[in-house]
């Protein structure tokens, strides 16, 4: 089953998001702060498939550090960053560092939950493909260096 970690210091945000993703059949863990999130990532035995993190928790760079922690643990973990509406600068920074995508939390007129379900699906798929590619590469017979 696809494992997801939600990192957000706002209880109601976490609860709403976890409920929606569980409805889709995902296995969802929650972390209520940046440090809790980092610990969860480091402590997981097979890594998370997708990490959804709030951008601004302890400070406005918290999301970037969660992204770094996740990629350090498993280079194929896909990270989706949640940002405040209109705060694109940090989101762009995350994209540069390899985030899968960013989603603005309160995008007017958009059902952000459906959007997130879609993004998580795409992220999970990209991870599966990446892992398959790696597996296929590993199946090639090893040739000794010339």
């Amino acid at each position: 089953m696809c494992r997801i970690l939600i990192v957000d210091d706002d209880d109601s945000v976490r609860v709403a998001l976890a409920r929606r993703l569980q409805r889709e059949g995902y296995d969802v863990d929650q972390a209520a702060s940046e440090s809790e999130g980092s610990r969860a990532i480091a402590g997981s035995d097979r890594g998370y498939d997708v990490v959804i993190t709030d951008m601004s928790m302890d400070d406005s760079e918290s999301g970037v550090r969660i992204l770094e922690a996740a990629v350090a643990r498993d280079v194929f973990t896909e990270v989706i960053v949640l940002t405040a509406y209109g705060n694109v600068a940090n989101a762009v920074e995350c994209m540069k560092r390899g985030a899968f995508d960013y989603v603005e939390k309160s995008l007017p007129g958009v059902d952000v939950f459906e959007l997130l379900v879609l993004k998580v699906e795409q992220a999970a798929q990209r991870r599966r493909q990446a892992l398959q590619t790696v597996r296929r590469l590993e199946q090639f017979p090893r040739t000794p260096p010339a």
């Binding site: 957000d8 945000v13 709403a16 509406y85 939390k105 309160s106 939950f113």
Partner: peptide
């Protein structure tokens, strides 16, 4: 406020 609205939308 964004967080509140996000939860409400959820």
């Amino acid at each position: 406020i964004g967080n509140r609205v996000f939860a409400l939308k959820g």
